[in-house]
Simulated assay, not measured.
Amino acid sequence: MKKVILVVDDDAEIRQAIRIYLEQENYEVIEAGDGLEALAVLKETTVHLIILDIMMPNLDGIITTYKIRELNNVPILMLSAKSEDIDKIHGLQVGADDYLTKPFSPMELLARVKSMLRRYLTLGEFEKGSKDLLRLNGLELDKVAKTIKVEGQEVKMTKTEFKITELLMSHPGRVFSIDEIYESVWEEPSFNSDNTVSVHIRKIREKIELNPKEPKNLKVVWGVGYKMEK
C-alpha cells in the first residue's frame, strides 16, 4: 500500500514541485492550499506524513500543527523561509517533528521524508496501534472502536459483517472456506451455511467496494472460498 503524504502550501507551484518529487518515489500525494483544507483532509483520509508550510493565509502552519496534535500523531515536516527562525522553533514546540528551510534540494526533502516515515511506521504510534488497527488497500478496521472506514469514510456494518471483515483483514491473502468463515464467526459447526455466508459477503462488498460486481478487496476463489486481497 502506498504511503500517503499531505502537502500543505498556499503556493501552487511549490506544491506541484513537491508532488513531482514524491510521486517519483511512489508516494501518494494529496494537496491542500492552507491549514483549513489540511484539517478537512485529515478528517476523511489516513495520512502517513504532512509537509506543512509555516506562512499561509486563513490558518498558518503553527496553528494548524497545534490543531493536528490535538487528535493526531502523524509526523509533520515544516517548510520555512530563512527569516522565520522564531516560527520554526515555535513550530517544533507545538508538535512539528522537523523542518526544512526554503529553498531546499529534492534529495534533502526525500531524505527527510524517508527518515520520518521509517521512524513513524516502525517505532511510532502508527505501529503501536497496529494490533488494534488493521489497514489494507484503503480499508481501516478499528478492533476497539468496532468501526470500519473506506478511504477515510466510515461505513456502518452489522456485528456479523464486522466479524467477517475482521477475520479476512487479519489474514490478507489467505483463502478461507465457507465452513471456516461460518465456524469462526458464528462459533458453531457449519451445516448448509453456503447461502448464509454468501449473503453476508455480498452485503460487505456493497459497503467496501467501489464496484461490488468487480471487487478489488474482497475476492472469491472459485471452489475454495474467500480472501481479502493483499
Results as ranks from 00 to 15, higher is better:
17 A>C: 12
23 E>N: 13
35 G>S: 09
77 L>H: 01
37 E>P: 00
44 E>Y: 12
25 E>R: 12
66 Y>I: 01
60 D>R: 07
61 G>Y: 00
23 E>Y: 08
67 K>W: 06
73 N>Y: 05
17 A>M: 15
75 P>M: 00
81 A>V: 08
15 R>S: 03
55 M>F: 11
60 D>C: 06
63 I>S: 13
33 G>H: 11
48 H>M: 03
80 S>A: 15
32 A>W: 10
28 E>I: 09
73 N>K: 13
13 E>H: 13
26 N>D: 09
49 L>I: 04
36 L>M: 12
30 I>H: 13
71 L>Y: 15
67 K>F: 10
48 H>A: 00
53 D>F: 11
37 E>T: 08
27 Y>L: 01
85 D>E: 15
84 E>R: 08
21 Y>K: 01
81 A>Q: 11
37 E>N: 07
44 E>Q: 15
29 V>H: 06
26 N>S: 13
47 V>A: 03
16 Q>E: 15
22 L>E: 03
41 V>E: 10
36 L>T: 14
67 K>Q: 11
89 I>T: 13
48 H>F: 01
44 E>K: 14
24 Q>I: 14
54 I>K: 09
25 E>F: 12
40 A>L: 06
68 I>W: 02
64 T>K: 07
29 V>S: 07
77 L>Q: 08
91 G>L: 10
86 I>D: 10
62 I>N: 04
92 L>D: 02
96 A>C: 07
84 E>N: 09
42 L>I: 01
40 A>G: 06
82 K>E: 01
68 I>M: 05
33 G>C: 08
36 L>K: 14
83 S>H: 02
61 G>T: 01
56 M>T: 05
49 L>P: 11
88 K>M: 09
